[in-house]
Nucleic acid binder design. Structure first.
Length: 596
RNA sequence: GCUCCGGUAGCUCAGUUGGAUAGAGCAACUGCCUUCUAAGCAGUAGGUCAUGGGUUCGAAUCCCGUCCGGAGUACCA
C-alpha cells in the first residue's frame, strides 16, 4: 500500500472520529511536502473546515495529533496555515530500498489470466513512401504505451495495419512504370522504401505540371485535377488491381516488397515490433462486404452515381462516403473490415488506435459506423490521438519532399553522438563494436526521449539543428547518470564490497531521504502513465529522479565514505536509483549503456 | 462558416483530482575537473501563466466571452 493511501485512510478515520463526518478519498488531498518546509507528507485541511467548524490551524492540530497517536509511521507534525505537514518515520523510507533491491520488476504489475486484453495499433504505414519524423512519433508512442500497459498488468497485442493498397500506392506504381526505367533497389543502391517514395514524389511533380497545363488551356481547376492523365492512369491501375489483373498485382507485389525490406530496417533501428500484422489488402474486402450488408439492411444508402454513404447527421456528424462511385474502397471501408477481423481473432477488451489527431473525426465516425452495423465495439475503441510534429518551416508534406526522413535523422544523430564522444574523450577504451553500439544507444536515447517527454496530445516543435542535444533534460543525461552509477557499482565489486540488505543507520541526510521518497513514487508514476496513456509522465519522472541523484552524487561520497554502514546504504541507494531509472526508461524503449 | 485541440521565461517543455513563493533544460553571464565519469554541480538573470470577466478560503488548472495558432470539415489516405 502506498503512503498516500495509508495517510488518506487514516485521515478519513480521523475526520470521522473527531468531527463525526464521512469524507471520501478524493476529498483528502495528500501531497509531498514542499522542499523548504519541514515534513514529508502534507495534508490540505481546507476541505474539512466545514466539518470541524474551526480555524484551519486548529483543524490541522486536531488531525495532526490524531494521526501522530494512531498511525505508527507518523513521527511528528507541524502546521502552516491550512497545511498539515507530517514527518514520516525514516524506516518507512528505508524499507523502499529493500523493496527495490529484492524485486527487479519494481513498479510493475503482473499479468494474470483475467487481465484485460488491450490491442494497440500503431505505425500503420502507407507503402508508398519511407517513414518520416511524424511516423517516428507514432512508432515511439505506440511501442511505449504498449510497454506501459504491460507494466500495468494488461495483456497487450501490438498490431500494425499496413496500408498496402489504394490510390496512393497506384500513384507510385504508375510513376515507376512511366519514368522508372526499371530501377530497383539492387541496381540503384537505394533503400527500397526510399526508391518507391522517390516515384511518389515523381508522380506528384508530373501531376501538378499536367494540371497547370490544362488550366492554361482554360479548363477549370477542379476539372483539371480530375482529368490530368496521370491521375486517370492511377485510377485505372486501382481498378485493375481490384480486378486482380495479373500484371498489376505483380508490380504491386514487387514494389511493396521493396518497401517492406526498407521498413524492416527502420523498425529494427527504432527498436519497435509487432505481434500481429494486418494488411489492408486482406481486410478491405471484409470491409466492403460489411458496407454492402449495411446497405442491404438500409443502415447505409446509395446515391444515383452508385456511391455508398452513411448518414450520421443524426449523431451530430456528417455524411460519410464508404464506397466510391466506381465501387472501390476508401480508408473507412478497410478500417471497418480490419476491426471485424481483429475482434474475431482476439478476445479484445479495449482497442487502442495510436493515430494522429488529424484523424479525430475519422475515429468518431468509425465508432459510430461499427455500432450501426450492430457490433458493440464502438465503445471499446479508443483513439489515442497525438499531436503533430512541426518543423520551423511548417508542416511536413511527403509529396512536396518537406519531410525529415526517419533513417537520415537517426544516422545524423548517431554521427553527432560519435563526434561528441570523441570530443569529450569518452569510450576510447571500448572496442570499435562496443563503442558503435553505445553511440547508437545514445543517439536513439536522445531521439526517443526528446519525443516521448512531451505530452502526447500536444503538437510539438522539432528543429533539426537545435533539437539534437545531449545535455540537460535529455535521454543521454539519464543514460550518463546510469553509467556513472554502474561505474561505482563496478568499482565496489572490484574492491570486494558487497551490499548488505540489512541497513543499520542512525540517521540519513535530507538529500538521501528525498531520493528515497522519489524512488517510492515510481509505481504511482507507472500507474498514472498507464491511466493517461502518457509516456511523458515516465520520462519526466526519470529526469527528476536522476537530477536529484546527480546533486546527491556530487556532494556525498560513496566509496570514499569511512563509515561502512553509511557506505553500504549509499551503494544500495545508488543501485536502487539505477534500477528504477532502467525500469522507467525501458518503458520508453530506451536502452541504458553500462558505460559512456 | 462550423467542430475539435492548443496558447506558461527569448527558445523547447514540465506543472499531480483547484493548494503554500509557477519549475526544468537550452541560449546568456559567473564559479567548480590532483577528489567515485565535468554529457556534471553550484549560482545570476529571465514571468501580467494570450486576454477580459466569473466561480471560492484559494485559479496556470474549473466556467463564459474575446484574440492568436493548429487540425478536421462528403468520392486523399
Amino acid at each position: 500500500m502506498s503512503i498516500e493511501t495509508i495517510i488518506q485512510d487514516a485521515t478519513i478515520e480521523a475526520v470521522k472520529v473527531l468531527y463525526g463526518a464521512e469524507v471520501n478519498k478524493n476529498q483528502v488531498q495528500v501531497q509531498n511536502t514542499r522542499k523548504e518546509v519541514s515534513g514529508d507528507i502534507t495534508i490540505v485541511v481546507f476541505p474539512f473546515l466545514r466539518l470541524s467548524k474551526k480555524s484551519p490551524e486548529l483543524t490541522a492540530e486536531d488531525l495532526g495529533t490524531y494521526l501522530k497517536d494512531k498511525v505508527s509511521i507518523v513521527d511528528s507534525f507541524n502546521v502552516i496555515k491550512g497545511f498539515l505537514n507530517l514527518d514520516i518515520n525514516e524506516n518507512y523510507w528505508l524499507n523502499i530500498l529493500s523493496d527495490v533491491y529484492s524485486n527487479p520488476d519494481f513498479g510493475t504489475k503482473e499479468v494474470s489470466d483475467d487481465s484485460d486484453l488491450v490491442m494497440v495499433e500503431y505505425s500503420s504505414p502507407n507503402t508508398n513512401k519511407p517513414l518520416h519524423l511524424g511516423h517516428i512519433r507514432n512508432n515511439l508512442l505506440g511501442y511505449s504505451i504498449a510497454e506501459i500497459l504491460k507494466a500495468n498488468g494488461k495483456k497487450v497485442v501490438k498490431t500494425n495495419i499496413v496500408n498496402d493498397r489504394g490510390i496512393h500506392i497506384c500513384k507510385s506504381m504508375y510513376a515507376w512504370q512511366q519514368w522508372g526505367n526499371g530501377e530497383t533497389p539492387e541496381n540503384s543502391g537505394l533503400k527500397g522504401d526510399h526508391l518507391v517514395g522517390k516515384y511518389y514524389v515523381e508522380f506528384d511533380k508530373h501531376y501538378k505540371a499536367e494540371i497547370a497545363e490544362l488550366i492554361e488551356k482554360g479548363i477549370e481547376k477542379e476539372e483539371a485535377e480530375n482529368q490530368a492523365p496521370s491521375i486517370v492512369a492511377a485510377r485505372e491501375l486501382l481498378l485493375k488491381w481490384e480486378a486482380k489483373d495479373e500484371q498489376t498485382v505483380e508490380l504491386w507485389k514487387t514494389m511493396n516488397g521493396w518497401v517492406y525490406e526498407g521498413f524492416d530496417v527502420t523498425y529494427k533501428t527504432l527498436g519497435v515490433d509487432f505481434d500481429k500484422i494486418y494488411y489492408e489488402s486482406d481486410t478491405y474486402l471484409v470491409g466492403r462486404d460489411e458496407v454492402l450488408r449495411g446497405l442491404d439492411e438500409q443502415v447505409f444508402y446509395r446515391k444515383e452515381d452508385s456511391s455508398v454513404w452513411a448518414d450520421l447527421s443524426g449523431e451530430g456528424l456528417d455524411q460519410k462516403i464508404l464506397l466510391r462511385s466506381d465501387g472501390t474502397s476508401v480508408y473507412m471501408t478497410q478500417d471497418i473490415g480490419t476491426a471485424k477481423m481483429r475482434f474475431n481473432d482476439y478476445p479484445i477488451d479495449k482497442m487502442l488506435y495510436v493515430v494522429g489527431n488529424e484523424q479525430n473525426y475519422h475515429f468518431q465516425v468509425l465508432a459510430k459506423l461499427l455500432d450501426k452495423l450492430g457490433y458493440g465495439w464502438g465503445k471499446d475503441l479508443y483513439h489515442f490521438s497525438y499531436g503533430m510534429v512541426e518543423l520551423p518551416s511548417g508542416k511536413m508534406k511527403s509529396r512536396e519532399g518537406t519531410v525529415v526522413d526517419a533513417d537520415d535523422l537517426v544516422e545524423g544523430m548517431v554521427k553527432v553522438a560519435r563526434d561528441m564522444s570523441a570530443e569529450l574523450g569518452k569510450l576510447d577504451s571500448l572496442s570499435g563494436k562496443e563503442a558503435e553500439d553505445t553511440f547508437r544507444m545514445i543517439a536513439l536515447g536522445a531521439l526517443k526521449y526528446f519525443i516521448l517527454k512531451v505530452d502526447p496530445r500536444k503538437n510539438m516543435m522539432f528543429n533539426p539543428e537545435e533539437s539534437i542535444d545531449f545535455n540537460g533534460n535529455t535521454g543521454p543525461f539519464i543514460q550518463y547518470t546510469y553509467a556513472r552509477i554502474k561505474s561505482v557499482l563496478r568499482k565496489a565489486a572490484g574492491k570486494n564490497i558487497t551490499i548488505d540488505k540489512n541497513l543499520n543507520l542512525s540517521s540519513i541526510s535530507a538529500k538521501e531521504k528525498e531520493l528515497l521518497k522519489r524512488i517510492s513514487l515510481f509505481p504511482a508514476a507507472v500507474q498514472e502513465a498507464g491511466d493517461n496513456y502518457s509516456p511523458a509522465i515516465i520520462a519526466n519522472y526519470c529526469y527528476d529522479l536522476v537530477k536529484e541523484f546527480n546533486q546527491f552524487y556530487h556532494d556525498h561520497s560513496i566509496l570514499g565514505e569511512s563509515d561502512t554502514s553509511i557506505m553500504n546504504f549509499r551503494l544500495m541507494l545508488a543501485s536502487a536509483v539505477g534500477s528504477v531509472v532502467q525500469n522507467g526508461m525501458k518503458l520508453l524503449g530506451i536502452e541504458m549503456p553500462e558505460r559512456m
